[in-house]
Every structure is written in structure tokens, then in C-alpha cells.
Amino acid sequence: MFEAKMLQSSVLKKIIESLKDLFSDANFDCSSSGITLQDMDSSHVALCYLKLRSDEEGFEDYRCDRNITLGVNLVLMSKILKCAGNDDVITLRAEDEPNILTFIFDSKNGERVSKYDIKLMEIDSELLGIPDTEYSCVVKMPSHEFQRICSNLSQLGDSVTVDCHKEGVDFKVAGEQGSGAIKLKQNTTVDKEEDQVSVELNEAVTQSFALKFLCAFTKATSLSDTVSLSLTQDTPIVVEYPIAQHGYLRFYLAPKIEE
């Protein structure tokens, strides 16, 4: 038996909304330690990795008697989650050898209980081994700032060059009709931590990435006030959104290189 009671359905709604356009079908791997999801986009350029820990406060109850994999169409899951109020408590339930995933939405005032079942899918997905590595540069910034940068630069071109150096981080785009550059300086003196821009630098990195994917990742902006970008030369960028009281959502994007 698997049963996970999440205090805020809005968290799961935001997660699925941020994933469903790039990653249509995904396996939720459930174990006693929590729920993980790894999925690649159809072009095999980007990867997402979600971790929701069972011992975090976001789960009121969590039970998973044996490891199970729940193959779900995320577009369908998004439709089901739209039936839940943002303040509803949501319970996910499945049997040990499941072919159905049940969603139960309890309204805050206890006056309405909704139950939806969806059929599970057999998803033959490949898992990639992502090593724990130290990155040359880790930039932490307000998530809305990163969203704005990606959105603004995507008006002019397809690729952004991210240049991390000791003074800060530069984002540059060069298209057929024009070019743009946004320079973010390190700023750790502002009062609120979530408004700070910090750069941990071991080695300078300059690398280009497809804006289409970075813009898609920023659909997760509402999950977190901050986002971190981890870079090492000639490896994928990691864009991480912490999820308070649950864990994190990470996106990995392979770089673009000069031909």
C-alpha cells in the first residue's frame, strides 16, 4: 500500500504544471524514503529530477510498504489536479501492484471530499545515472529574475551564453536581428536572502544553452523564491528549484556547442 498525504495540493499542482509541457509521461518512483521522478524530454536534451522526501513536513502522513512505480500521463494528472482547491489536502493512494492511482482532495473546512482515479501506464523510460559532482560555479538568484532574463533574451535569439566569473554572471544572446546582454552582479548585502544574487566560483565557466528549454524550466518559478544554476564547462547546466518542506525539482540541460 502506498499513501501520501500532502498538506498543500498547490505544491503538486505547480510541480505538474511545470513539467507537463516538456515531459508528457513520467514514472513516479515511490519508496519509504519518498517520491522521485526522473524523465527526459522527447528530444533527449533535457532531464528533470524531482525529489519529495517522506520525512519532510510537507507530508502529513506517508506510507509505502514496498517500492512501486506509478506511470502517469502528466497532462491527465494536471487535469485532475485542477479539480482540487489550492488549500485542499491531497492524498495519493495506490495498491502494492497498482494499475490505478487514486487522488483524494479534502477541502480545508472538511465539507467536501473529492475522489478521482486514473489508470496507470507502463512507461518504458531510461534512467540516467547523474553523478554527485562539485560544480565550477553555482549562481543563486531570485527565481523571478531568472524567469525574466530567459523571457527577455528569448525575444532576440535561440541560445543564451552564460558567462560566470568572479564579479557575477552575464547572460548574452545574439540573433539575426539584434543582440542583448544582461549582467548580474553579486549582491549578498540586500536584506532578504531570497533577493540576493550570489556566485560561488571555483573556476570561470562560459557555456551556451537553448533558451527554449530554459524558458520551459522557468514554469517552475512559483515553486520557489530562489533558483540555483550549477555549471561546469562542457557539462549540462543544473537549474534547481527548492520546494519548501518537500525537497527539490532539478532540470538538467545539455549545452550547445560551436560546430
Partner: peptide, 14 residues
């Protein structure tokens, strides 16, 4: 001209 790398190129499949 830039070309897009695949994520397979960086991480091992298992």
C-alpha cells in the same frame, strides 16, 4: 552555428 548536444552524451544510461 551552434549544435545541440544530447543529454545521453553526459550521463550513463542504466
Amino acid at each position: 552555428e551552434m549544435s545541440q548536444c544530447s543529454i545521453y552524451f553526459y550521463y550513463e544510461c542504466f
